[in-house]
């Protein structure tokens, strides 16, 4: 029944503006084998991600949200259905996406500049080009002055900024974010949410942002996809009825925010698993 709620009409009407479809999941399912037993991670996913939107995916742990990101990145193929990127089936290591995970995965032996340089070195840019681009990125994420610090000397928020700068360095058009702020404290988290939304909108990035935190999903997203428990199916896709340049810092006093939170919470509540 959950899959029916996500039929194509729902999806198309919730597009924020008539932009181009970037990623498309068509009847996507994924099975893994865990300890010899088959495990259905996601099932019957029909979903479109439009260019320039921030799409948040929220649902209980283990509902296969990350699986969708991994398939968009081409880390593995779906068991059923198709994942299309700009109309073409995703091949291994989709070069149009950048991936950010909960762990920042900075290289401890490289300082901030060294870490941000990695994708540029891989691209084969000259030392001067790398230097210019890194300076620009440092400024963009607010890390100027920390050029020669090692990750071990940075705070959690700084490390996130560094990982973000590294991600933006090679300018992927789509950012896949898998609970990137889950390990941060509440204040820092909100600050990173404000920065990431502002930055992605400014740079016109398309974002798929996975979180298990409904508040975060609403604060950051243009649209929000709510998942059921495993096997993960789409329970509902909603437009977030908040201004594009919303004030995330004062959202909790916004009646529209309170209403959408209450509404989505009712959708998500059965997944808590107390009532059945």
């Amino acid at each position: 029944m959950a899959a029916e709620l996500a039929h194509p009409e729902t999806t198309s009407t919730t597009a924020p503006s008539p932009t181009e479809e970037l990623i498309r999941f068509e009847g996507v399912g994924k099975r893994f084998t865990v300890d010899g037993k088959p495990l259905q991670a996601v099932e019957g996913i029909d979903l479109s991600v439009f260019e320039g939107e921030i799409l948040t995916l929220v649902g209980p742990s283990g509902c296969g949200k990350s699986t969708l990101l991994n398939m968009s990145a081409g880390l593995f193929a779906p068991s059923d259905g198709k994942v299309l990127y700009r109309g073409e089936q995703v091949k291994p290591y989709n070069p149009s996406v950048g991936y950010m995970t909960q762990s920042d995965h900075l290289l401890p032996w490289r300082d901030v500049v060294g870490n941000i340089s990695i994708p540029l070195e891989i691209k084969g840019l000259s030392k001067r080009e790398i230097g210019d681009r890194v300076a620009e990125l440092l400024d963009m994420v607010g890390l100027s002055g920390f050029e020669t610090s090692f990750p071990s000397q940075l705070s959690g928020g700084m490390r996130k900024r560094c990982a973000l700068a590294r991600l933006l360095a090679y300018n992927p058009e789509t950012l896949l974010m898998d609970e990137p702020f889950a390990a941060l404290d509440a204040m820092l988290r909100m600050r990173m949410q404000i920065e990431i939304r502002e930055l992605c909108r400014r740079l016109g990035k398309t974002v798929m942002f996975v979180t298990h935190d409904l508040d975060e999903a609403i604060a950051i997203g243009d649209r929000c996809v709510v998942f059921t428990r495993r096997p993960g199916t789409i329970e509902r896709i909603v437009d977030i009825p908040l201004a594009p340049d919303r004030d995330i810092l004062r959202l909790r006093h916004d009646p529209a925010y309170m209403e959408i939170t209450a509404q989505l919470w009712e959708v998500l509540a059965p997944s808590v698993g107390v009532e059945d």
């Binding site: 990145a73 880390l75 290591y93 989709n94 070069p95 996406v97 950048g98 991936y99 995970t101 762990s103 995965h105 290289l107 032996w109 990695i118 994708p119 070195e121 891989i122 691209k123 090679y170 992927p172």
Partner: peptide, 25 residues
């Protein structure tokens, strides 16, 4: 970390990049 290697491959890294930039250091 396999995650780290995946992140680098998405950045366009080949096996040689992974070896010299991550595995050996």
């Amino acid at each position: 970390s396999r995650e780290l290697i995946a992140i680098l491959k998405l950045m366009g890294a080949n096996e040689r990049h992974v070896l010299f930039k991550v595995v050996l250091p």
